[in-house]
Nucleic acid binder design. Sequence first.
DNA 1: CATTTGAAAACTGCATACAGTTTGCACACG
DNA 2: CGTGTGCAAACTGTATGCAGTTTTCAAATG
Lengths: 230, 230
Amino acid sequence: MQNSPVSQIKRRQVIRAGTTVEQMVRAIADMIVTGVLAPGEKMDEISLATRFDVSRTPVREALRELGAMGLVDREPNRSAVVANVTEGYLHSMFEAMSELEAICARLSAERMTVEERRSLELAHRASAKLVHAGADEDYAAHNTEFHTRLYRGAHNDHIFELVTQTRARLAPFRRAQFRLPGRLARSYDEHDVIVTAIMRGEAAAAGHAAYSHVAIVSDASIVFASTKRN
Amino acid sequence: MQNSPVSQIKRRQVIRAGTTVEQMVRAIADMIVTGVLAPGEKMDEISLATRFDVSRTPVREALRELGAMGLVDREPNRSAVVANVTEGYLHSMFEAMSELEAICARLSAERMTVEERRSLELAHRASAKLVHAGADEDYAAHNTEFHTRLYRGAHNDHIFELVTQTRARLAPFRRAQFRLPGRLARSYDEHDVIVTAIMRGEAAAAGHAAYSHVAIVSDASIVFASTKRN
DNA sequence: CATTTGAAAACTGCATACAGTTTGCACACG
DNA sequence: CGTGTGCAAACTGTATGCAGTTTTCAAATG
């Protein structure tokens, strides 16, 4: 394991500060949502402690926090494992995501400032290039930002927290959503309906469009997740 | 420290099982939502440790978990404090609550089983007696159960989690909601509209009724909370 | 009298130590 | 050859100790 003191020191400076535990929470959460750690994978405290060059105490606190976030499952006297949800629960998370996005789109249509609307539309139009170029990765990044704009546009901090939290828990299960042929173009079109409704201040229409958009992604992801499992 | 093996064993048997940390999380969370600990109150680790007769380690883990739940605020090298949110954030939580309840009522209208509908209506009808008797406390208990029925009736585990979590964080700020004169009777009437819509399977109507119902409670609570603060 | 300062007290962050539990393996026994 | 049993290794849960930070309070100074 490449565990030189140098890399440790670098980590502490590069990943912006905070307590040891906070750094570990971010680092581990990142590994989970990006798929470096797969759902179901065991994470014993000693390995993590040596890997991050700290004692078990901060590791345990980080794992507990990740457990509270729903990213890892913990049982007494057992190793923590990367959260692996049942298909039923996965479905409920996707449905919740659709509902939450619908709320955000609806509220965005009502509440976004002129500046927010303008920059939403600009970013959306710009993403057309990525679709034509077939740039999966870049479009995925744009997509993440697009949805974050909707969450912020609702101007409700608590809903922002709920939707962000749900998105993090879903992340491990919807990687590669843009691998499906033709998905990029259709995603763009769906975004377009949402943006248009928001620009016109048509709250209900924006909500419905966002609901369908997420539902479509959900269906694709559930297929993906269930074919991959076991 | 009175750390006799006997008291240890007793605790483990009397307070129903789970790890030490889980017990503490439940106990402290309960103190917060019931108002034994007021928002803004400091909770230093040593006091809690001696109070629960354990070392600081499990206390720290419990506090971290409570922090992740949003019930306590933590900053590096400072004592944890019972979460004290800004008026703006409080407002966003109440709005989120309205939206979530609307979703639950809507889905309940579509998905509740015959049995669930029957027992919802029965419990609701029974609560009329409490209103006439002016039994604040008992009606509050019924009210909690009533809303829990809606959350379960939606048949979506993740939404259940989100709404439960939000309710817990709001609890400290809406105590005494039934102290306001005439509130009991109006609450019953509002419940009645929701129940009727659900029994008829009118999803949209149930959603709207639930949204208004919670919004009304929110307004009252915000007044209460802000008059009490500072 | 108000303000600054500095040292001690109090508390948090992390490491280490130890106790209790689970797991895996080897050996005995049917 | 399969199965059960017991021991050892590995790991989690909790306690304790120490280092570093914040807070408090009182004395000194203007």
